[in-house]
Design a protein around this nucleic acid. Structure first.
Lengths: 336, 336
DNA sequence: TGGGGGTTCTGCAACGATGCAGACATCATG
DNA sequence: CATGATGTCTGCATCGTTGCAGAACCCCCA
């Protein structure tokens, strides 16, 4: 099972281990004659460098870890794709792990026996554990946070402007003349920062338009899945005065809401207009297609990876707060 | 940056390195007195074992790699989730990489300088490179193939029965009384084995029903994305005699096809019934919801990981050909 | 002929951990 | 008291690689 080592190659080519290493790495000057002899031995034995050993010696692995709550949530899958791409351009590979939003799993990740020491850096997506806790367990390896707002930043952090995004989405609905705009996805409790920022934006839009928010229309959901979007929509439809528009805190909620609406016989957008957030590909092909706030995922991934690379290569810069652009993409679910 | 090592802890606790190691691993008998002293030192220095070093010594990393063409294709994302789960139950973590179906990327993965030596095993999903080539570059580490049919198996292989699955999907449409059933997704060329198996099943269903296949209705698509499903459907609709049903080789194609149909003003399933393959979650929430062939992804992942673990732990069993169950799930796109 | 400078090549130590054999002390037993 | 068994603890070698310093050799020119 175990392959040939430098030693085996050296023996066969009748040279020192070090010389073989030099040939493999193209390092020091090696005469053509020896080089071809060594190369022949390498080929004959089909030598492959043992990266573990190389890593141990060099103190880096060329791997970073990307930790997301759920890999099969399209936003994270699409983000993962971009991260893998960005990392590759730095010669890095990415270990993807999912925590199911489970705080224990996350703690484990940062704990003593964690495999985190195998990675040169960590990209963490929205966390169940608090900023406090993260800081106290702070690992020895560089960390960049994605999309979760951690206050008084002790970590590098990349995200879009959630307040502005939510404000624009809501304003778009108000501009269409809708007056009962619901919000699905609030999380008014610890670690629900992202959702809270979006709620803040939703309120700002109302305030700027001189409108009151009907608190009945702000629905809390513990997470952002299709099913919860559908359920929340059903509850809203059961109100005496149901909404004529909904701002959903992500696209999955929005698609679930649309599903509930069509099942209930309401037309989208005629009866109820719907906006989501994330711009997952699915929203381009749904019926109706989905108006959404599109964060620049490629940019998020690139900036996050760049920042992480900077931290890995020792630039002990102060934690950076990076805001990536977003834009409203109007599709059928509001434009009819 | 570099954390404390066993040596540092040993120095602080005034014991040998070996004893610290024993405490860390709970190995040999260590007296309570020393144990507490060492433990204190471990805590004070916040020691974390260097896994690279441990791995080098032990010859295994506790990591496997999962290689898929595209991580943001829902089927692969959902599969990845299951694989990560299954691997975790064996104490393994999973590196996910994507190749974009790019043969060069795959060759690189298997090539000399590949990072594959960092992993105890490899799970490979449908490949752009041929079975031949894979075999010739066969790595030194155990490999299990997922969902791609490699003939005269030299590798472990886990998949559903593609012919049967396609036959059942097509039969379902024929049973509904549809007589012009199209197929979207054929790939009648090298490395299109999976697609070819599905086409075979499609033909079998026709043959068993005593019907001819209209070759005009069999559409080739180079890959399985929503856009191509929509385009293929548009072409089919432009035929003098358009189909009254479509069997799509995966759910994304089907969702794209549905999109094209509704845009063209056709009703699904009344005018055209649609079936997909994969049972991605999106199909439960689309409008209409999607009838599909559901492979048991959890089972695929578990069997694949189990098989890989077996191979890693040295059981040099003959390559196993594992067939996992699938079933037809009827939803609105055919049941109206 | 001898010494400076360059080119090739090599051995040793080290990365941080664990396997192994053995040192040392303690204790029970005949 | 000698013997051996047992329980703790330690040092050395090792995993496969690379950094470093220097050895060996060649060439050139004074």
């Amino acid at each position: 099972m175990a392959g040939p080592t430098l030693r085996d190659v050296a023996k066969r080519a009748n040279v020192s281990i070090r010389t073989v290493s030099n040939v493999v790495n193209g390092y020091a000057p090696v005469s053509d004659e020896l080089r071809t002899r060594v190369q022949a031995a390498l080929d004959e034995l089909d030598y492959r460098p043992n990266l573990i050993a190389r890593n141990l010696k060099q103190g880096r692995t060329g791997m970073i870890a990307l930790v997301v709550p759920e890999l099969d949530v399209p936003y994270f899958a699409e983000l993962a794709r971009e991260v893998i791409k960005a990392a590759r351009s730095h010669g890095y590979v990415v270990m993807v792990d999912q925590t199911d939003g489970d705080g224990d799993r996350e703690r484990e990740l940062l704990g003593r026996e964690s495999r985190a020491t195998m990675f040169d850096g960590l990209l963490l997506s929205p966390l169940a554990i608090s900023a406090e806790e993260l800081r106290s367990r702070a690992n020895r390896i560089p960390v960049v946070l994605l999309g979760e707002h951690i206050f008084n930043g002790s970590f590098h952090h990349v995200a879009m402007d959630n307040v502005a995004a939510a404000r624009e989405a809501t304003a778009h609905l108000l501009d269409l003349g809708r007056r009962r705009v619901a919000a699905i996805g609030d999380q008014p409790y610890a670690n629900g920062e992202t959702a809270q920022l979006r709620t803040a934006g939703y309120r700002q839009a109302h305030a700027r338009a001189g409108l009151e928010v009907d608190e009945e229309l702000v629905v809390t959901t513990p997470h952002f899945h299709r099913r919860l979007g559908a359920e929340a929509m059903e509850r809203l439809l059961a109100l005496p005065e149901p909404p004529d528009a909904v701002f959903c805190y992500n696209d999955l909620l929005a698609l679930g809401a649309i599903r509930a609406l069509t099942r209930a016989g309401r037309r989208v957008p005629d009866d109820v207009a719907v906006v989501g957030v994330d711009d997952i590909e699915e929203g381009q092909y749904s019926t109706p297609s989905l108006t959404t706030i599109a964060p620049d995922k490629g940019e998020i991934a690139r900036r996050a990876v760049d920042t992480l690379m900077g931290a890995i290569n020792g630039s002990a810069a102060a934690p950076s707060e990076i805001v990536v652009p977003h834009r409203l993409i109007v599709r059928e679910s509001t434009a009819g």
